[in-house]
Design a protein around this nucleic acid. Structure first.
Lengths: 346, 346
DNA sequence: ATTTTTTGTGCAATCGATTGCATATTACAC
DNA sequence: GTGTAATATGCAATCGATTGCACAAAAAAT
């Protein structure tokens, strides 16, 4: 019933050669004659030979597996990055395993250990929001195992990283709101804790400054930026009677929460308050109004991360050069912020 | 710099015993004295020993890895199922690798081969929409490798599966629409190709029948059920001047497309047309109006799939009993179909 | 005190592929 | 025709953990 798997020894036996020859023939080793290679390939095919990656991994010390750590895979952004990595990795005969950290530092440490235990050839990771210690990642580097960080990164680790220009994205978003006539733009952020939000905050501040709009501390709302947080931020602004005509949220989720609450309070979006989110999550095109957001090109980010990964992997020891790649984000304009067109239409 | 990894031999050497003893001690083998176990554990800890899963997998023939094949991971439903599987698997010291088939039969075959090559201990899969041949899955079964199918399954394969009661979900959805006063309910489906949609179609038909509402072929719209398909279906109905006051879509995506098009044509949802989707994807609560849908309890489905998987894995050979578990879906009522409450409120 | 059992370890092979080194064969040069 | 180089293949060790069998020492039974 259960057909024993063919090994290189089976092939060798049939052909009256040794396993070494078969192994070399399959690996296209130049020391093997073309004739032998041919018969080996044919016999391998005939016996339906499937190489045992586990044996190969044990001997060579290379598992041909890349570990990816993401906060959660059910975010469009992260699953797209994974897809980008996969495409490059698969084309080079590497496989990918994904572990979710659920934004929990402990799970993140466990994930790193699990991957090291599984002897992955390297790790590509995005940090959890609450990650403050980097020891687990330092351990990876100490072992000379390639590590690439993407999106949520840190400069405290000396390794390659891919990010988008969060500053620029935020700047574009804010300028867009200003161009749509907004003069009191609220900003939802988490800048004290996460690096990318700090950059977005900076872009927001700078855009205001460049357009002569005074910065108003009261318009900043810090939170974890989930949907509910966006609702709370709007509620607080309304309660406090702080007038505002635009919102730039550093997350799509708090932006949609904001839109919901604004509508519930009888305010028009974008007529009374124009709203821009960040990430261009897939749901942004499905809301009412559809939401303007910043596209982060996640697939490209994954591809670049994989590229940097293989650069590190193939580098000679002590020759490893860490690179930081910065991608350009793009503003995707939808109805939640588009006032001018409306005016020209009406 | 690069500290060599400790092996059981290193531990053995330090303690003047053999690797066999260390291996047994670590595995808590009863033939090893408690005293020895203790010192081995301590030394393992001191040397920061990490077991090499690859070596262990090679020797034992068990990789402790489960392969999961899903059409795409960026669907809330699938990523939740994966999470459910992961939870059970991790608790039993198994890891999970996910491969996406992108609904492409060729990629699905490649995925199966990749997983078998990687010597996974078994596979949990959901079929692509276009999968019509099952040879690749039969090969898995022939090798006595556990296979569990979930959601999009087939009865042509004799293996364990988990599904929700699609018939019941559809029945509930349709009855709900009828209760909301709908008498001409359109149905978006793909029943000719995919098993689960056939069941939903059946539930729809049966609910109409049970409530004395005549079935009308013209109200059935077959498609791939993406967002754009939902728009087309509504367009077609409107163009053909077929009157309808409800839509039960077998997919959330075509449901949202339908809602968009209805609104663009000046029709009220739910006042003119009540809409119910299927899957309870996360975006359904974010649309305007929020969308009524059927929850499939994906995390539970993943947990059950893992459970069935381990049942198969641990079964004695030739004792394998394949089970089919059917979960109960639940109707999540939101605004896209809720007319009665509106009436009572106004 | 001797035999039998139990208990605790060691030995050595094994999983399948890889690879440095040795060796056999052939080709080529002078 | 002998020496050297090039070519093709085999031998045997290795990666790290596991495990059937053997065996010595200690405990129990007679």
């Amino acid at each position: 019933m259960k057909p024993k798997k063919t090994t290189i020894h089976d092939i060798a036996e049939k052909l009256n050669v040794t396993a070494s020859t078969v192994s070399r023939a399959l690996k296209n080793n130049p020391r093997i004659s073309e004739a032998t290679k041919k018969v080996v390939l044919e016999m391998a095919d005939e016996l339906n030979y499937q190489p045992n990656h586990i044996a190969s991994a044990l001997r060579s010390g290379k598992s041909h597996v890349i570990g990816i750590i993401v906060p959660r895979i059910n975010r469009a952004f992260f699953s797209s990055v994974v897809r980008g990595v996969e495409e490059v990795a698969n084309s080079l005969d590497y496989r990918v395993v994904v572990i979710q950290s659920y934004e929990d530092p402990e799970k993140e440490v466990a994930a790193v250990n699990a991957l090291l235990n599984a002897r992955v050839d390297g790790i590509i990771a995005s940090l959890g929001k609450n990650t403050e210690s980097f020891e687990h990642y330092e351990n990876i580097l100490k072992k000379d195992i390639p590590l690439v960080l993407f999106d949520r990164t840190t400069n405290k680790l000396n390794t390659s990283q891919v990010v988008i220009d969060d500053y620029l994205g935020a700047y574009k978003a804010t300028v867009h709101l200003i161009e749509q006539g907004c003069r009191s733009i609220a900003h939802f952020t988490n800048y004290k804790r996460v690096n990318i939000y700090k950059e977005r905050y900076r872009g927001y501040v700078e855009a205001l400054k460049d357009h002569g709009i005074p910065f108003n501390e009261a318009l900043i709302c810090e939170s974890n930026m989930q949907l509910e947080d966006g609702r709370i931020c709007v509620d607080n602004l309304l309660q406090a009677n702080i007038s505002f005509d635009g919102i730039f949220s550093a997350s799509d989720y708090s932006a949609i929460g904001a839109i919901q609450t604004l509508k519930e309070n009888g305010l028009g979006v974008p007529s009374d308050v124009a709203v821009v989110g960040f990430s261009n999550d897939s749901f942004t095109s499905l809301t009412e109004p559809s939401m303007t957001s910043i596209d982060q090109f996640p697939i490209e980010m994954g591809e670049v991360a994989a590229q940097l990964f293989f650069d590190m992997l193939n580098a000679e020891k002590n020759t490893i050069i860490t690179k930081k790649t910065v991608l350009q984000p793009e503003l995707i304009i939808r109805n939640s912020s588009l006032r001018l067109q409306e005016k020209s239409v009406s």
